[in-house]
Structure formats: C-alpha cells, structure tokens
Design a protein around this nucleic acid. Structure first.
Lengths: 235, 235
DNA sequence: ACCTTTCTTGTCACAATGACTATAAAAAGG
DNA sequence: CCTTTTTATAGTCATTGTGACAAGAAAGGT
C-alpha cells in the first residue's frame, strides 16, 4: 500500500496514486431525562484506550453513504428507528495522530432522540453530559462531544428541534424542561409559554390534557411544520 | 488492495481490515466585489467533467491535518496568506458515486477573503455566485457551494465575520455593502449604521476618514475583538 | 374546606426595530 | 461663490419583543 504517496493535483490521478485513509462515523447521541442532558457512551473493550468511555461509532462500508453508516450505527446501539430521531452531520475530525494505529478520518454525526430505551448492547449506557470533564473520553471524543452539545444548544435557539427530544405528544412544560436541560439554565414558565404560543408552526394543540401528578393538568401538543423559529428563543 | 473488505466493529481491527478511501478537501472561497458575491472556481483540465467548472481542491497528504490541507490549497490558488482569511470547516460529502472513478470523501472548507489578487493559476477565476445555476458545477460541487453560501449568509447574522470580507481599515458603508452582496438585499443605511455602532466590540474607530469620491467622507474603522453579535443583525 | 402545586393568562416598563426625517460634509457644476 | 447632488451620520416615532412579575385556573393532598 502506498502509504506515503503524494498526489500533486486533483487532475490526472489514478486509483493507486493517493494516500489511503480509513473513514469512520462517530455518533453524539443526546437525549433529555429532566433535569439532565445525557449522552450515549460505549466502554472500549480493546486497546488502545481499553476500558475508557468513547462515542459509539464504526467504519463506513466501501459502498455505504456516510449518513447511512451513521443511521445504521444509531439503530444498532439504541434500537431507535431512524424516522423518530433527528440526525445531522456535526463535523469531521482527522488529525494525523488522533488514532495511534493508523490514519483515520472520522465524520461525526449528532443525533437527538426522545424517550430512549435502555441500550441494547451491554457496553453502552447513558451518561450525564455535565458530569464529564474536558478530557474524560477516549481519543478526541471529548472535543467532538463538546461540539455536539454546543450545536444542540445553538439549534434550540433558532429551530424547532427541541421537539425531537420530546415524545409525539408533549406539554409546554415538557418542552421547557428540554430547553432547561440542554442549556443548563432555568426559564420563566410564563414567558416561555408565551413565546412558544406566539411562534407560528412550532406546536399544534391536540385538544387533550395530561396531568403530571401535581398541579393543574397541561394541554398537550404535537410538533408542527415549522423548522426555523421566528423570532428565536434566546439563551 | 482490499477494496471490498468490511470491518465489523471499531474494536479488534487491523490496518488491512477496513475499506480504503481517498480523502480530499474542496474549498468554497468567497469574496465580495460590490455589489456581487464571488466564488473562486477552477476549470477542469482532465476528464471526467473536463472543461466544466469546479471548486478548487486536492488530496489530503497521508500525514497532513485536514485544515492544513485546506490552508495550503487556499494559498496555492489565491496567494492569500492564511492569517488574513477566515477558514472554517463546512461539511463532508461522501456519497459513494460522487466521483465516478473511486470512493472519495471530500471535506469542504469555507474561506472568506478580502481584496483578493487575481488568481495565480490561469485556470482559476472569480465568478458571480448568483450567475450559477443549481447544476452548473462538476460533481456535487453546486451542492457544496450552496451550503457554503448559506453558511456565510447565516454567519453574517450572528457573528462579526463580515469584517473578514473587508480590508484592515473600512467604512460602515463598505461593511454594509458586504451584507448587501452576501444577502442579496438592500439595507437601510441609517439603521445599519445604528446597529453596527450599538454592538460592542464589532468595530473600532480609527479617527481617520476616507472619501469614496462622492459625498461626505466616512469615518474608518478596524475590526474589534467580538466574535458574536449581540443582538444579531437579522436578514 | 383549605393549601399547595403547576399551568396559563395578563400587565407593565423597557429595549430593539423599521420607516422615515434631518443635518453634516464633501464634490460637481454653474 | 453659491447651489445642487451625493453620501454619511444623527434623531424621531410608532410598533413589537422581552423580562419580571402578578393573578387566575385547575388539579391533588391534608
């Protein structure tokens, strides 16, 4: 294998005249269990970094599209059906020494899921995001996680994606608890309610109500058709 | 070469047990020549897609970091020094058939440059973004360009990046012409001026003025230290 | 019956915005 | 030299969005 071949231009090359890379996908799978934001991690069973926690991931097949690889890893690890979850590309990490064994480029994906079942694989489990230090994950996965969390925080401001963390039917208070868990702040219930209701296409009333045990029962809603929030809900 | 080998897990693999990919970087290099937003394109000299326009790019070296590859392509094609330009990762495109010859994953970068010299290479030149149709570039480069333009439009709302399109010293009118070119809209000069001035850390007065030929001379400013705009300047 | 809890609506002062007017400082043309 | 034109910058005002807070509505607990 021509590990050190160098291509001089995108023109005039042939399939033997480029440096070979392995391509993987890594997943930042987030969910909300109020009042906490949680991330799915797997414990590595092999060296390097044996025993430490890492993001779930794996190789991309030679004929597999990147998003398909991410979807299949997500289903493998969580049993979540793809249609229920939000999945978007987060960024690509390819520092030469990020994996000590070989040159790997990893395409990170961010998944937002609601009501996850307990992970199917024993070595995967949910962890509080705010309980992880900046360096506690294997490889550069802490950096990838930080980028995923920041992306989620930012998307909640400008899009309706918070509904991806809720079940099909939810109350405004549940939606607020999503914002509070992801942002790590408390929000005024009355003002939050007003803003959600004032935003066309964010949520749609079902006509039903639901009691959380204590207090006045809340009306329930389903996600509506808007994708962007006008005006945004700012942190 | 094991073109069809399939890795079953991230654990327990060895360097011969993964599908090999070629990794390239593609650059969306944008600049503003009022009243137009322009993108740097190269004309392909080889098949496939010989003669059609494409984004500049090239292979990533086997020991080269992704951003370093992007920086070196940028300097090669434009002569721009890296410190003067803004460069950020845009996204990764890896559909199995995006290049007909082999499996290629391309990491796209977005570069915003000010006052570019004429391209050093004859086959590269600046093109109006609004003069390109959705399908006029080679491979999936029209899609990549669209994503780059949308990223630039969005970043102008929430960050101070518009200053990257200006020289070191600029007037508020020049900054406004950047917004108008990137967004493709006209802005009220008085309101724009008020918003820029009201945003701490966006621009810093030099004390000098500069005449554009006609009209009252404008004060000049340099970019200041803020990276995010509070409040944003909305489209 | 009362209290507590939570959801929901309402009030009010204040900040940000768009549309617009007014003034300032230069060049161009008589 | 004075007026017109052009652009930059400042100010006005009605409207809208916001945070802090009060108040009413609807349930369960004691």
């Amino acid at each position: 294998m021509l590990l050190h071949s160098v291509a001089v231009s995108i023109d005039g090359y042939n399939p033997n005249d480029y440096p070979p890379f392995a391509v993987t996908v890594d997943l930042v799978v987030l969910t909300v269990r109020p009042p906490n934001l949680k991330v799915l991690l797997t414990q590595r069973g092999e060296s390097p970094a044996k025993g430490s926690w890492a993001l779930p991931g794996g190789f991309v097949g030679s004929e597999q599209d990147l998003i398909d690889a991410a979807q299949s890893k997500l289903t493998d690890k969580t049993g979540i059906q793809v249609a229920e979850a939000h999945l978007e590309q987060l960024g690509t990490f390819g520092a030469p020494k990020r994996d000590p064994r070989m040159r790997i480029v990893s395409v990170a994906y961010l998944a937002l899921v609601a009501d996850p079942p307990e992970p199917e694989l024993d070595e995967a489990s949910w962890h509080r995001v705010d309980g992880l230090s900046d360096r506690s994950l294997a490889f550069d996965h802490s950096e990838i996680l930080a980028k995923g969390v920041e992306r989620a925080r930012s998307k909640l401001e400008y899009t309706t994606l918070a509904t991806s963390f809720c079940g099909a039917e939810f109350t405004v208070a549940e939606l607020r608890s999503v914002y509070e868990a992801v942002w790590g702040t408390e929000l005024d219930a009355a003002n939050f309610h007003r803003k959600v209701m004032a935003t066309d296409g964010f949520v749609e009333a079902t006509g039903r109500t639901e009691s959380a045990g204590r207090g006045r029962p809340a009306r329930t809603y389903v996600a509506s058709d808007a994708r962007d929030l006008h005006p945004p809900i700012v942190r």
